[in-house]
């Protein structure tokens, strides 16, 4: 199990008296990109929140990079695991400049050379240096999401929790952010746990996915299942059909890609 970046075992999560997630167990290998798929209310974001320490009322086991996670906030934990939120319009402080937002995690952890690190990070996420002293309202949605990703990466975590990072963005901007996330993962050897309801995004970004419905995982499938719809659970099949199935499901294309990535 030392290979697992994130390991969840029999995880139950409650908000007050309502249990919203039941019996969730899965492992995400180091360097893997794993997706949690499901509808609103299926508990997928809650799982991310529990891992990040934002939903403290859980039972079971959560361990990240081999270390079991406690229930409270944990400073050493934020060095290894960071989260990017869904809505870049809501997740950045409106009265803090990008520079402040990015240097804050460094200040909290007492890390020096902040200015240099901020400059480096801005270019790593593809933002021009002129954005450094601007406020969030002066940035577009895509640029803000880049800032949110940069903020999450400031402490050089190994594990990233992504909560629908592109659902608030336009198609062409979504493509830019997905490319960015893919490149960062390749360059920094990151592990991704990504929540989404967009199956094509899973196909582009992830290696495996867990499908959640009503707080439980109904199926864990490799992304190749998206090519031919070879899911076993009826709920997953419904979700797949509602997403339009695979319009490119041409037998010749499928055969060609099979030979390319076995």
């Amino acid at each position: 199990m030392s290979n697992a970046a994130i390991s969840l075992k029999d995880l139950d999560i409650s908000y007050g008296d309502t249990k919203v997630v039941r019996d969730v167990s899965f492992d995400v290998a180091t360097g893997e990109s794993f997706a949690l798929v499901g509808e609103s209310g299926s508990g997928k974001s809650t799982v991310l929140k529990a891992i990040a320490g934002l939903a403290p009322d859980w039972t079971g086991e959560i361990s990240v990079l081999g270390k079991p996670r406690g229930h409270g906030t944990d400073r050493t934990f934020s060095n290894t695991c960071q989260m990017v939120f869904q809505d870049p319009y809501a997740s950045l402080h409106p009265r803090k400049t990008i520079d402040t937002v990015l240097s804050e995690p460094l200040a909290i952890h007492g890390i020096g050379q902040r200015s240099k690190k901020v400059v480096e990070m801005l270019s790593a996420v593809g933002l021009d240096q002129r954005f450094r002293f601007r406020f969030p309202h002066q940035l577009s949605g895509g640029q803000r999401q880049r800032v949110a990703i940069a903020r999450a990466l400031m402490l050089e975590p190994k594990v990233m929790l992504l909560d629908e990072p592109t659902s608030a963005l336009d198609v062409s901007v979504q493509a830019e952010i997905l490319n960015l996330l893919k490149r960062l993962r390749r360059e920094q050897g990151l592990t991704y746990l990504m929540v989404t309801h967009n199956l094509p995004v899973v196909s582009f970004m992830c290696d495996r996915m867990a499908v959640m419905n009503k707080g439980r995982i109904v199926e864990i499938a490799p992304k190749t299942a998206l090519y031919d719809g070879s899911f076993s659970d009826p709920y997953t099949l419904d979700l797949y059909a509602a997403s339009g199935g695979n319009p490119d499901a041409d037998p010749a294309v499928a055969a060609a890609s099979d030979t390319k990535d076995p």
């Binding site: 979504q174 493509a175 490319n179 196909s203 582009f204 490119d248």
Partner: peptide
């Protein structure tokens, strides 16, 4: 720019 169900491209 849209990801496809059967994505073979490395970059969009």
């Amino acid at each position: 720019a849209q990801p496809r169900m059967q994505e073979t491209r490395d970059e969009l």
